[in-house]
Structure formats: C-alpha cells, structure tokens
Simulated assay, not measured.
Amino acid sequence: MLLMEKVALLNRQNETFALAMIIESKGSTPRHVGKMIVYRDGSIEGTVGGGLAEHYIIQESVKAIQVGKSKIVEYKLNKHAKDGIQMNCGGTLRVFIEVYTSRPELVLAGAGHLAQALSRLADSLEYPYCIVDDRIGYATKERFPNATDLFINEDIGVAMLAANLNEKSYVIIVTKDRDDIVLKTALQFPIAYVGMVASKRKTITIFEKLKNEGVTEDQLEQVHSPIGLEIGAETTGEIAISIIGEIIKLTKETKPTKVKQLTS
C-alpha cells in the first residue's frame, strides 16, 4: 500500500497520527522529498531521510500529536552552525508535521427523535456514531442510515456492552426509560465523555439509585447532566445543537479526560 493510501485509510478508521512531509530542502540533506507517518508511540511508516534529523522529527511529531496541533520544524544539518544538530550534511531541512486527530465517536443511547437530530448533525460533521436501544422498531437503518452499528437488545445493558466503548467514545444518553442502566454500564469503560438528557429531579433520582448500587460520587461528578451548552435551547433541533456544541467545545479546549471506571 502506498503511503498516502495508508494515510487515507487511517483517517477513515478515525485513528490519531501525524504525517511529516519535507516542504523545503536546501543544500546537502539525506533526502529532498519524503513523507513519514508517525504514530502516538513513535513508530513510523515511510521516511524523511533517516539519521538524527529523522529522530528529532519523530520526537516533534509525537509532541504535536499529544497537543493536537500541526506545526513546521526546521533543522540545520551542520554541527558547526549555530543551532545546528550533530550532522555533517551542511544543508537545511523544513518539515511540515500535519496532525490527524480522531473525531469523537458518538454512542447514541436511545433511538428517538433527539437521537435522530443528533445523528444528522453527526453526519454533517463526519462524526461516526452508533445507536444503542432496546426497541427494534426504533433502531433501524431507515431511521439512522449512516450509523456505523445498531446495537439492539431487550436488555439495553447488554446492548451497551456490545458497543465496544473506548477512550474515543462520547456517550449521549437519550433513552426512553433506561438511563440508569445505560449510565452504570457506560461507567465501566474508559470513555471520553458521558452526558445524560434529564431533568434535575430525574438526575438526582438516578444518581441516588446508582450510589446505592456502588457507583461513587467521584464517578458521578464526571457525568454531564444537564447536558449541552446553555443557549436557551427548546426544540429538539436546538437541544441537539447544544449537545454537539458542548462536545466540540470540550474537544477544542483540551484533550478529553477519560471517565474513571467502576472498580467493581
């Protein structure tokens, strides 16, 4: 597989990585053109010339991935030059490090009207999403044509377990009457975010129930409820916008903190 084909594949798979590309080369350098994929652990595919310069570029790429920002780096390949690195080539090398960050993977727990509105926004933002519900007639491909998966089970907790929740998962709970089960199940995994559409009274009731079942206060403090940005949302579409807006805000401000898992 060609390197740029691999980049396209990784992007479709919603992976996080960096692509380092030589954008300018002056004088004597190991290579004048080159591309290299760098993963979060520092492993690579391709090359920008090898040697010490490539080693530094890998380090800078990993740092760029960690902060989620692309950048340009420049190296003087001359150990005698001011700010030069320990190489004898003598030329200069400029490299663009483009960071590909994974998009939030939405887990819409509940397949009602709000979930449909959320799915349409997810489509426009190219956010992958799956549907979890206990009702066969609601969680369908006709209603959610672009869902990556539909997880349906009469026991919605079993359906949630099948959703393979991970550190990219943003769980939005909009069930008919199974919020407590979904929330408790979600907290068993190192998810990025969990939010629940519920009134203040309903939230208190669910939290008290879960605390009696072993969920800690520390766990529950990480749950976003009420969910969404304060924009005075009233309609289903407006509420969906406020929820997606909150997720966008969190992903732009800082890397999401994994929800702490249940210990039992």
Rank of each mutant, 00 (worst) to 15 (best):
A115L: 06
Y127S: 09
P128D: 03
A109P: 04
Y100V: 00
V67F: 02
A64R: 02
P128N: 08
E126C: 15
Y129L: 03
R120I: 08
E98M: 12
C89I: 04
D134E: 00
C89F: 04
A122C: 10
A109E: 04
N88C: 15
G137Y: 13
A139F: 01
G84K: 10
R143I: 15
V95S: 07
Y138G: 04
V95I: 03
L106G: 03
R94F: 11
V99N: 11
R143L: 14
D123K: 03
Y100D: 13
E105Q: 10
Y129H: 05
D83I: 00
S70N: 10
L77W: 12
L93Q: 02
K69V: 11
E105K: 01
L118C: 05
F144A: 02
S102H: 00
G110M: 03
V62H: 06
Q86A: 12
K71L: 12
Q59Y: 01
V132C: 05
R94M: 12
D83A: 14
D83L: 15
V99Q: 08
R103F: 11
F96T: 12
I97E: 06
E142C: 13
A111N: 07
Y75V: 10
I131Q: 01
P104W: 00
A111G: 13
K76E: 07
S70V: 05
E105C: 06
Y75R: 09
Q86Y: 12
V95R: 08
A117G: 05
M87T: 05
T140M: 07
F96K: 06
G110Y: 07
K82M: 11
S61K: 10
L114F: 02
K71C: 14
L114K: 02
K71Q: 11
E60I: 10
L93I: 12
K141D: 05
A122V: 11
K79W: 15
T92W: 03
S61V: 01
E142W: 04
E60S: 14
I65G: 11
F144K: 07
R103W: 14
V62K: 05
